[in-house]
Computed example of a mutant assay.
Amino acid sequence: MKLIIGAMHEELQDSIAFYNLKKIEEEKFLIYKNEEIMFCITGVGLINSAAQLAYILTKYEIDSIINIGTSGGCDNSLKQGDIILVDKVYNSVADATVFGYAYGQVPRMPKYYETNKEKIMNKIDSAKIKNIASSDIFIHSIDQVNSLVKKIDDEISILDMECFAYAQTAYLFEKEFSVIKIVSDIIGKKDANNVQFNDFIKIAGKEILEILKKIL
């Protein structure tokens, strides 16, 4: 069974309705499924994301995981609405460099997590392949990008608060993991953010459904 996982209900509600998914859990975790696919809405943040994905992977038979949703951009080559197929996933606030680890690397874990993008890249012609970094900090300024994200020894184009947790959990459970993001805004690029987030997320939810139709 494929698992579609994301942070916000607004991002996935159109897809949940289209695939006629039934809510099977809601007391602690919000989980929907039919006979072929499962959706989980984790809420925002690294711990929420890791805990809920680990719960699902210990309780249900999951073959592969796709994280899909919106993401902020820190790359001026991007624009609002761009579809991103993530290559590498980094942590933008882990710092064990005093012990010889790379900035962003959790001790005794990989420097980054590489996704299984090859399985879906040919199905989304308009997607751009970029790297993402995650943290529990809502990064919204150039100063934050410079002080946190730019310390990573790679080019980071988009940011969120969940993806790294999904990626590390998938790695520990040895599950295939892919990431698709729609750029909601570009930090420091005012003319790039024509639609405010509360309106944009409704547009993104419809686009997410169209993407899922292509890859599921």
Rank of each mutant, 00 (worst) to 15 (best):
K2W: 11
K2F: 09
L3R: 12
I4D: 04
I5D: 03
D14P: 00
S15F: 11
S15Q: 13
I16H: 03
Y19V: 01
L21Q: 07
E26W: 07
K28G: 00
Y32D: 07
E36S: 13
C40M: 15
C40Q: 15
I41H: 02
V44T: 14
G45Y: 01
L46Q: 15
I47T: 14
I47R: 09
S49V: 00
A51S: 14
L57P: 00
Y60R: 07
I66C: 09
G72S: 06
G73H: 06
Q80K: 14
G81I: 01
I84L: 03
D87M: 03
N91C: 14
V93S: 07
V93Q: 05
Y103V: 05
P107T: 10
P107E: 10
M109C: 11
T115S: 05
K117F: 14
I120N: 09
N122R: 01
I124T: 02
D125E: 12
A127F: 02
A127T: 03
K128Q: 14
K128S: 11
I129N: 12
K130N: 05
I132M: 05
F138E: 08
S141T: 15
Q144P: 02
N146V: 11
L148P: 00
F164V: 05
Y166I: 10
Y166E: 08
Y166V: 07
A170I: 04
F173H: 12
E174R: 15
K175D: 12
K175P: 06
F177V: 06
F177I: 08
S178P: 00
V179K: 00
I180F: 08
V183T: 13
K189A: 10
Q196G: 00
N198V: 07
F200S: 01
F200H: 04
A204L: 11
G205T: 08
E207A: 07
L212A: 01
L212G: 05
K213P: 05
